[in-house]
Amino acid sequence: MKNKLTTAREAVGKVKDGDSIMIGGFLTGGHPENLVSALVNTNTAGNLTIISNDTGTQELSVYQLVKSGRVKHIFASYIGSNPETGRLLMTGEAKVQLFPQGTLAEKIRAGGAGLGGILTPVGIGTVVEEGKKKIKINDREYLLELPLKANVAFIKAHKADETGNLIMNGSSRNFNIVMATAADYVVAEVEEYVKAGEIDPNHVNVPGIFVDAIVKVG
């Protein structure tokens, strides 16, 4: 069995100029803080694309990342908690694209699930529909939203076993589960690491095959 256990520094070392990075979490909940902190402090790749529900809060390292000038494109649904993302949007220093939260989640799911896109009624009649194809089905209009994938995903879980099976706690599941399916290199930051067989298969939130690297913290 391949040993997936690694360090934050080594894991973030895989990030290259121009990469797209999914970052799990909802505000401070289920956010892979140690991985993002390592990306800020030990990696200099620029021209990055960030896909995150909210780009975190001012206390998190993702705030520093967005502030560093290394990010040129952001996909998010809510950025009120990170004033720096708002500033980039206003000044145009980075391209910031906002999507309804359910649409963002489903675009990522489509990316991981091999779908060509999803049809959602959300955003019809608003600026969200600009530039997107509209399709009418049974007299109701839907927007075609295209799949999202990334080079790298940083996600947070409570526990991993050697095979990469993950367990997440409480409200920390959020975007971490879909993001695990939609990136080429998926790194999970975990609080506990156990041998294969020590996680009840009934309780696995993310099958280990989606996880390339595990970083144990704390």
Partner: peptide, 14 residues
Amino acid sequence: KVPGMGGAMDLVVG
């Protein structure tokens, strides 16, 4: 002010 729609659009439609 552009804080983003978060889940608001999905909520009012759904």
